[in-house]
Computed example of a mutant assay.
Amino acid sequence: MSSALLRHPRLITLEGGEGAGKTTAINAARDYLRGLGHEVVLTREPGGTPLAERIRGLVLKPDEEIAAEPLSAEAELLLVFAARAQHVRRVIQPALQRGAFVLSDRFTDSSYAYQGGGRGLDAHWIADLERRAVGLLPGLTLLLDVDVAIGRARANGRDLWPDRIESEQDDFFQRVRAVFRERATQDPQRFAVIDASQAQPAVAAAVAAAVAQRLQQGGLA
């Protein structure tokens, strides 16, 4: 894959910390686009293909053997990018090439936030992996922004068995949120920041409005 990043207008990603409500948001975006007659492919990261889902299991829900040998931050990052490279080639690119919209629950911004901000890995290394293994930028990234305490309370009420990322401490998620917000500030043409502290219907309406606005501006043509 080329080392240049191609911003694709029909690739829409949803980002945010734990408990931000990405499921509500992605469903709202899907329903809006399908209502206009577009083909929409829903997918997620890590994952999206059978192999990438197996890698997801290593990253998020390690088996007994892996639990006895915890993943280093560097191994976690490389596994996530291995899954993403497979995901891009097997799911995202074919869907975009046939004219579909792709809605992905997380994409490369999560690596900057979680492995960069949360784990403290070098953002330049992440950027190099992004260029070499991914090559794509979303045309629109919906950032579901919510206070860490609110998001974690929601996640704790939902997940009886937190995965290895969800089990991190508050300071980890504060760093994650800070990187997401910084990236949104640095690239306002790509990001739409949604106040995810609102009730689900309000979040869904804000997401649909952000997608509609971008379509009207010609940014998702």
Results as ranks from 00 to 15, higher is better:
residue 56 R to N: 08
residue 48 G to I: 14
residue 149 A to G: 07
residue 83 A to S: 11
residue 28 A to V: 12
residue 184 A to C: 10
residue 133 A to H: 08
residue 173 F to G: 14
residue 206 A to S: 10
residue 179 V to W: 02
residue 48 G to S: 05
residue 147 D to E: 14
residue 132 R to K: 09
residue 18 E to W: 06
residue 19 G to Q: 09
residue 183 R to C: 09
residue 122 D to L: 05
residue 55 I to R: 01
residue 48 G to H: 06
residue 115 Q to W: 00
residue 131 R to V: 14
residue 112 Y to A: 08
residue 108 T to G: 03
residue 207 V to Y: 01
residue 176 V to N: 04
residue 78 L to T: 13
residue 73 A to C: 09
residue 117 G to K: 01
residue 131 R to I: 15
residue 79 L to T: 13
residue 183 R to E: 12
residue 65 E to L: 12
residue 64 E to F: 04
residue 23 T to N: 07
residue 78 L to V: 10
residue 202 A to S: 09
residue 112 Y to F: 14
residue 188 P to L: 00
residue 64 E to T: 07
residue 55 I to L: 08
residue 8 H to S: 14
residue 160 L to M: 03
residue 118 G to L: 12
residue 177 R to A: 06
residue 74 E to N: 06
residue 10 R to I: 03
residue 164 R to P: 14
residue 19 G to L: 09
residue 153 A to P: 15
residue 74 E to L: 10
residue 75 A to S: 11
residue 32 Y to N: 04
residue 90 R to W: 00
residue 90 R to V: 07
residue 221 A to P: 10
residue 198 Q to G: 12
residue 32 Y to C: 06
residue 173 F to R: 12
residue 190 R to A: 06
residue 220 L to I: 10
residue 105 D to Y: 01
residue 100 A to S: 05
residue 194 I to E: 13
residue 151 G to S: 12
residue 18 E to N: 14
residue 207 V to T: 08
residue 151 G to Y: 03
residue 145 D to W: 01
residue 146 V to S: 05
residue 193 V to L: 11
residue 116 G to C: 12
residue 156 N to S: 11
residue 183 R to Q: 14
residue 152 R to Q: 13
residue 149 A to M: 01
residue 141 T to I: 15
residue 133 A to P: 15
residue 191 F to H: 13
residue 119 R to E: 03
residue 17 G to D: 12
residue 19 G to W: 06
residue 1 M to Q: 09
residue 150 I to T: 11
residue 180 F to Y: 10
residue 10 R to F: 01
residue 17 G to R: 07
residue 81 F to V: 13
residue 53 E to R: 01
residue 178 A to M: 11
residue 1 M to V: 15
residue 28 A to N: 09
residue 152 R to G: 14
residue 193 V to F: 10
residue 97 Q to P: 00
residue 120 G to E: 05
residue 83 A to V: 15
residue 206 A to M: 07
residue 93 Q to L: 11
residue 107 F to D: 15
residue 136 L to F: 03
residue 155 A to D: 11
residue 105 D to A: 01
residue 114 Y to C: 02
residue 64 E to R: 04
residue 142 L to C: 12
residue 102 V to A: 03
residue 120 G to W: 00
residue 188 P to V: 02
residue 44 R to L: 07
residue 143 L to G: 10
residue 70 P to G: 11
residue 76 E to S: 01
residue 68 A to K: 04
residue 69 E to Q: 11
residue 90 R to I: 07
residue 73 A to H: 05
residue 34 R to F: 10
residue 70 P to F: 04
